[in-house]
Amino acid sequence: MSAKNNSNKCLYCGACVGVCPVSAITLKDTRIFINEKCINCGACVNICPVSAMKLDKK
């Protein structure tokens, strides 16, 4: 399970990177990468100003 980034909505501001408690998110240029460390906690979903992050519900 991992958070997912919607690159069509994302403004690559990096807010999600700053609040990720396990440093699972990286911002490179205009792309967000989420690695396997993600604990699906939702911090990134909460902070995102444009709701570009969603939790994987599986």
């Binding site: 501001c13 807010a15 609040v19 990720c20 911090a43 909460n46 902070i47 995102c48």
Partner: peptide, 12 residues
Amino acid sequence: TKNNLNDTDSGY
């Protein structure tokens, strides 16, 4: 340097 959600604002 992590930011606690309670101490962070979402800006637009």
